[in-house]
Simulated scan of single mutants.
Amino acid sequence: MTWDTSVARIPADVEQADKILGSFSARQLAILGGTGLLLYSAYMAVGEQVSLIVCAVVALPIAVVGILLAIGQHDGVSLDRYLLAAVRHQQSPKHLVSMPEDIPMPPTWIAATAGPQPAPLKLPARGVAGDGLIDLGPDGVAAVAEVSTVSFALRTPDEQDALVAVFGRWLNSLSGPAQILVRAERVDLSDTIGALEDNARRLPHPALAGAALEHSAFLADLSACHDLLRRQVLLIIREPVVGTNGRDAAAARALRRLDEASRVLGACGLTARLLDARAVGGLLASCFDPSAPALPEEEIALPGEVITRGEPW
């Protein structure tokens, strides 16, 4: 048996389109070819009745637009896709409400200027079940786990090779969609500072109390002068729903795959903790406002819970 040892270049941008002819992709060739075919068809239709100079004047802006659409980019997005997204955004409703059904019309007795009709807000997540799994509707269910981290740079070369081998073993064992999400969220030190100040008064020695108060003052100054962030690594396992009773089977498969990932990644010193319903609800809520501090889990109501006031009426 002979092995093919030819070298293939892989671009750093793995989402880069394949080059079909020269430096042009199939999409670019389609735009350029469509523009050329349009101009040629128009010339063949009216070329005998219109002078060549007039045809050139009319065809030049169309050709320039076609070339710009083919090779132009805006913030890394091709110009044709950017313009298509702009048109789609312009035509889409701007007032969205979280209602699964159609929005009813306002009553006729309201004397108000008629405005744009709100539309339902369609989110990929339909809800969070009691076991912490996210209901994705026709896309299945998703299980979310928070994964710890290891210091790769402080390991020896042999330890680094072992970590990469274990991680590669987990990647090769994947039997369905999986996502590794690294997100940053704000850190609120107000509770920690308050606890330090309260405990400092009960310390047995004045030097310990002074050190605790100095540390609380340092944390307060640090929180006031800097935007404190912490990184959170999440592992999301998704399983499709198949059949009438497919939701329970998909949930079982997702939990089983997450347990297998936890066992394999445990060889790297990583621990995966499955998020419960409150933690997943807080995670989804924080995604709507990433700049705000995360909500405490005890302040997040589970599906079906009755929300009451914290003080008597």
Rank of each mutant, 00 (worst) to 15 (best):
L69Q: 03
A85I: 01
Y40N: 03
Q49H: 04
G310A: 14
L37M: 14
D75R: 15
L121T: 04
A86E: 09
D188M: 03
E311I: 15
P100R: 15
A59V: 03
S286E: 09
L203H: 02
A162M: 08
A267Q: 12
E197C: 01
A285G: 11
G72A: 05
E260V: 03
S41K: 09
A145E: 02
V187K: 12
L136D: 01
R309L: 15
R256G: 03
L181D: 13
L203W: 04
D276M: 05
V150A: 15
S25D: 01
L275H: 08
V280E: 00
G130P: 02
W109I: 07
P177Q: 15
E298V: 12
A111H: 05
P303A: 13
D131S: 09
I53W: 15
P11T: 11
L181M: 07
R88Q: 12
F218W: 11
A277K: 07
L283F: 10
T308S: 14
V164P: 07
T2A: 14
L270F: 04
D135E: 03
D139T: 06
E260A: 11
A220S: 12
E146H: 06
A86N: 09
L235K: 00
L79V: 05
G194E: 13
T308H: 09
A45D: 02
A292C: 10
P120K: 07
D259I: 00
A267I: 00
T35D: 01
A211M: 12
A211W: 05
E197F: 01
Y43M: 07
A86Y: 04
P206E: 06
A209Q: 12
Y82H: 07
G130K: 12
A178Q: 13
A56I: 11
N172E: 15
G36D: 10
R230G: 10
D221I: 01
T156C: 10
V14D: 06
G266V: 09
D139A: 12
T108D: 14
P118G: 08
E185P: 00
L228N: 10
L229Q: 14
V147M: 12
T192N: 07
A42P: 00
A277M: 09
R256Q: 11
E260W: 01
E146P: 00
L154I: 14
